[in-house]
């Protein structure tokens, strides 16, 4: 019995030792896995954005871009996110929507800006989308729904534009799973708090849109793709309740109003 136990333990020891030795080698670098993944995402990002921008009308008002840029800048600066990794685009469309494409492309519709009552609400939605980008949710969702092989063949040009359009539609008009949405919400609250932006406004935005949902649902893409908004608003409030932060505004009131007027004209 003793002999058998010693022999058994020696096999376990051999396995653990081999695992330990294998762990000493940097396989990720050896197989260039990270570089390949990053390259695939970069190519997909350019491909998706290239097709998307041809189909939609990009907002050409410099002022609106500058104002949104300053919101994104503050969020990035206070959360140690490289600003260059977030590529902000404003699309002229009445739908209340914002979404992320691969390689950090963040798309915001003018309909969303028009529907936000204050800059904090808009910052909340932007923070939520940045959280998806930073947590790599976009590539995870694409890999899960479309498959890695299909994604790689997209980058090599072996698939038609139709499949790329379908993938964009998947990202712009369907939600991530509940766990990822919650993760992005909580991360967004942290981002907002670090940038000293009141996260309660983000929760209020969700409450309000959830109530409006039934009446004008065709324009509320963002809310219909992000289910259980009331529940989300509740846990955002609960999570941000005990944070003792002196909140401040990034934009002046007049800048915010000018932005709304600028987009309305």
């Amino acid at each position: 019995m003793k002999k058998t136990s010693i022999q058994g333990l020696s096999i376990v020891f051999l396995f653990v030792s081999m695992l330990f030795l294998c762990n000493q080698i940097n396989w990720m670098q050896l197989f260039s896995i990270k570089a390949t993944t990053a390259k695939t995402e970069e190519k997909l990002g350019e491909l998706f954005w290239g097709i998307y921008q041809k189909a939609e009308k990009q907002n050409d008002k410099k002022f609106a871009n500058q104002v949104l840029d300053s919101l994104v800048n503050q969020l990035c600066k206070n959360n140690k996110i490289k600003r260059a990794t977030i590529k902000l685009h404003i699309i002229t469309k009445n739908e209340v929507n914002a979404f992320a494409l691969p390689n950090g492309h963040l798309v915001v519709y003018t309909g969303l800006i028009a529907n936000c009552k204050n800059q904090e609400e808009l910052s909340g939605v932007i923070a939520h989308e940045i959280a998806h980008i930073e947590s790599n949710h976009v590539m995870s969702k694409l890999t899960k729904e479309i498959g890695l092989t299909m994604l790689i063949s997209m980058t090599t040009g072996n698939t038609g534009a139709e499949s790329i359009k379908n993938a964009i539609k998947l990202l712009s008009s369907s939600a991530f799973d509940r766990k990822l949405e919650k993760e992005a919400d909580i991360k967004a609250v942290d981002y907002l708090c670090n940038a000293k932006i009141n996260p309660e406004a983000f929760a209020n935005f969700l409450y309000r849109l959830a109530e409006e949902e039934n009446s004008t649902s065709k324009y509320l893409s963002w809310i219909s793709t992000h289910p259980e908004s009331k529940n989300r608003a509740e846990y955002i409030i609960a999570y941000s309740k005990n944070k003792k932060i002196k909140y401040k505004s990034i934009l002046t009131k007049s800048t915010w109003l000018a932005l709304k007027n600028n987009l309305a004209n």
């Binding site: 396995f15 081999m18 695992l19 294998c22 762990n23 080698i25 940097n26 396989w27 990720m28 197989f31």
Partner: peptide, 9 residues
């Protein structure tokens, strides 16, 4: 890296 090391072992 842990995953690849485990698979190889």
């Amino acid at each position: 890296n842990h995953y690849i090391a485990y698979l190889i072992t």
